[in-house]
Write a protein that binds this DNA or RNA. Structure first.
Lengths: 266, 266
DNA sequence: TCTATTGTCCCACATCGTGGGACGAAGTAT
DNA sequence: ATACTTCGTCCCACGATGTGGGACAATAGA
């Protein structure tokens, strides 16, 4: 997956792997640095970087001559977002969830056996859960991940279980049987709760968003530090979360009665 | 600018122009469609699209075989954002501005003689100002644009004035002298106001954010439909906007007294 | 049903990308 | 200050790599 040499275009593949080097942890790269990192000659690395800059994909710190991401990728990502109508449909719910809870609220979609944060509003508090748009996380850890997994096709659950469940914190569920039981509970409750399974010391709530065909297309999530986001708070927010997930599902064209049956039984 | 054939890499340039086709207005493309649009042979277009998909840059609607943006661009854009520490420093201000006003709040940075929306929280209302991350707009129209321009280097002002000022709405300032006078006023007030200059029927407020060297690095903006966002409201929100711009500037390392002098004189 | 258009595959050709090496500039240690 | 390393860029000959035409089956539309 790291070196997908499946494609024929070599220079293109290299350009992509160059772009992949630019990450929040290290947003700036020099020519030789890239060359070393990707085992390229400096000529090649330099020329590719120049080309990418000429195309506006990369920018350059004129002082240090080091390269940084360019603003073009923002435009691309907005194209991605608009095609993902989940994000559009769920945005109102996201804003409302954030307004009510004042905690970090986010939306995840599943891609294969991972989930990706496609939108998020962070808590204004200085101690908060931080997630970045585009960040990938596992499905088995964290409320949003479990919510996605609980309603995913069986095939996906099988794939997730076929590999060892990576431990993210001391409370991550790593026992297969326990995870399956948890997914069952989630299907009954309509939401998932995570006590520090993904981030130590954080509590998270997650609920599925369905589309018109009844498939899960996303998970709505809110998470905060346990010092502030207590179980009492979580209990208060749960019906709101479900209400908003129902509303977002409706916006996606969902006409089923899953949420009604859950909310009635509460 | 459309066909930057400055770069040597041909396939790379083509790949980039393919990616540029994916826009919110048309997020899905077929092979032949792309080939026609960019005057490529179907073989070439198809192969490039396949490669881009293999790299994870594009996705594919398996039913229609048409291509869409892939989630990788989200990761790239988060690298761009993190390198832009403006966004980080100003996020708290953005959230607060949105919370207080319940209108669409956004952050713009200048790039050449344009501005780009790098972050935004949309109003939960159904009638609202809509801007997309990565969207480019002119500097002379709209509150955030004028705020950026008012504090930009003279060279930039000259460049903006050297071309005709494009009319975006009936109220856009298109007379050079009038724009210069407006910029003067903005420097005195510390903020810019736009009555439908960029979007017809919208009112916007914009304030500059400075960094440690005293240069403007961004503009903080809030905008809403005039039916709801009246002049009275604007007057109430102005000191808050200035306060938040001051706070964001401080987070960027600004130690000047510009905002104090403005806020004192109010 | 027939027809037009789609996406994919194959292949010969030459264009385009490649890496080695040389160069001056900038930074670092002595 | 000098010597040394490391930086980004440039040049160039070689050949790997990307190219477009055409054929193909599959699909969509009439």
């Amino acid at each position: 997956m790291a070196t997908g040499d499946n494609s024929s275009e070599k220079s293109l593949a290299r350009a992509v792997s160059i772009l992949d080097c630019f990450r929040p942890e290290q947003p700036e790269w020099g020519v030789s640095e890239i060359a070393r990192h990707l085992h390229l000659s400096r000529s090649t690395a330099g020329r590719l970087l120049q080309s990418l800059q000429a195309q506006g994909v990369l920018g350059q710190n004129t002082a240090t001559r080091r390269y940084i991401m360019g603003s073009k990728v923002l435009t691309w990502s907005s194209a991605y977002m608009s095609q993902l109508d989940v994000a559009r449909a769920a945005r109102a719910a996201l804003v409302e969830l954030h307004r009510v809870t004042c905690e970090t609220a986010s939306i995840y979609v599943r891609e294969g056996t991972e989930r990706i944060c496609v939108e998020r509003i962070e808590s204004p508090e200085s101690v908060r859960v931080v997630v970045r748009r585009g960040e990938r996380m596992p499905l088995h850890a964290g409320s949003a991940g479990k919510a996605l997994l609980a309603f995913a096709p069986e095939e996906i659950v099988r794939q997730v279980l076929s590999k060892p469940l990576e431990r993210m914190t001391s409370r991550t569920i790593v026992v297969r049987k326990q995870l399956l039981k948890e997914l069952e509970i989630i299907r009954n409750c309509g939401y998932a709760i995570s006590h520090g399974e993904r981030f130590e010391d954080a509590l998270g709530l997650g609920a599925p968003i369905f589309d018109s065909t009844g498939r899960v297309v996303a998970a709505l999530n809110v998470a905060g530090p346990i010092t502030r986001f207590t179980d009492d708070q979580a209990a208060r927010f749960t019906p709101i979360l479900l209400q908003l997930a129902a509303q977002a599902s409706q916006a996606m064209g969902y006409r089923g009665t899953y949420f009604q049956s859950i909310l009635r039984s509460e």
